[in-house]
């Protein structure tokens, strides 16, 4: 009887140990490549490269010299034409944050967030006090639109695979359609299964 109890106890212990999940917190700047797919490191490297390229390019000084004010940028659509699901917002937000914190580039809201802002403004026209009500038609017009694309090339044979991602961001003058800056980042990986 005693031996059965001991066996039961140890088997329960083994079962518990097998079911336990271990979670370890890591630094977002760490580079844990697990599956070889697009990960946080790729996003961070892209953001860093795009920030340094965009804020260090000639388009910024050219615009300031020509217009005497800092350029205002709106974020357009990023097209992911790669073989993986990649959300560009992760590095686009880093870039936008760098624009604002550098105080060299202005940023205006677009897309659904802008719709929400306008809806709120419309709501204020009937519900807010006159002194606090925000008026229509006073938004900042963007000078440039930020658009981009993500492409990938996959070469695989048996257990070996190379993946190359190419991320391009473009800044285009909205009035003249002139592309003033193209940011480029290439990431290559060799995966062996």
């Amino acid at each position: 009887m005693k031996s059965i109890r001991i066996i039961c106890f140890f088997s329960a212990l083994i079962l518990l140990a097998a079911c336990s999940r271990k979670v370890t917190r890591i630094d977002p700047t760490d580079t844990p490549d697990i599956s070889g797919k697009w990960n946080n490191t790729d996003s961070r490297l892209t953001a860093e490269e795009m920030i340094s390229q965009s804020l260090g390019s000639a388009w910024l000084n050219n615009f300031v010299q020509a217009k005497g004010k800092k350029p205002v940028v709106i974020c357009g659509m990023i097209s992911n034409k790669s073989h993986e699901h990649i959300e560009a917002e992760t590095f686009i937000k880093d870039l936008e944050r760098a624009f604002i914190s550098s105080a060299k580039v202005g940023l205006v809201q677009g897309g659904k967030k802008r719709e929400e802002l306008r809806a709120e403004k419309a709501d204020q026209q009937t519900n807010s006090s006159v002194s606090t009500m925000k008026r229509f038609g006073l938004e900042n017009g963007a000078d440039f639109i930020l658009q981009g694309s993500i492409n990938s090339i996959v070469d695989a044979f048996k257990r070996k695979k190379t993946v190359t991602y190419q991320i391009n961001l473009e800044l285009t003058n909205i009035e003249t359609n002139e592309v003033v800056w193209i940011g480029d980042k290439k990431i290559s990986k060799f995966v062996k299964n």
């Binding site: 659509m77 034409k81 073989h83 677009g110 897309g111 996959v154 695989a156 048996k158 257990r159």
Partner: peptide, 19 residues
């Protein structure tokens, strides 16, 4: 046209991987 502003359009393709 402006609906997709600030978003990522996913036009992904399926890459052949032997493994």
């Amino acid at each position: 046209i402006l609906e997709g502003m600030g978003t990522t359009s996913q036009n992904t393709y399926k890459a052949y991987d032997w493994f």
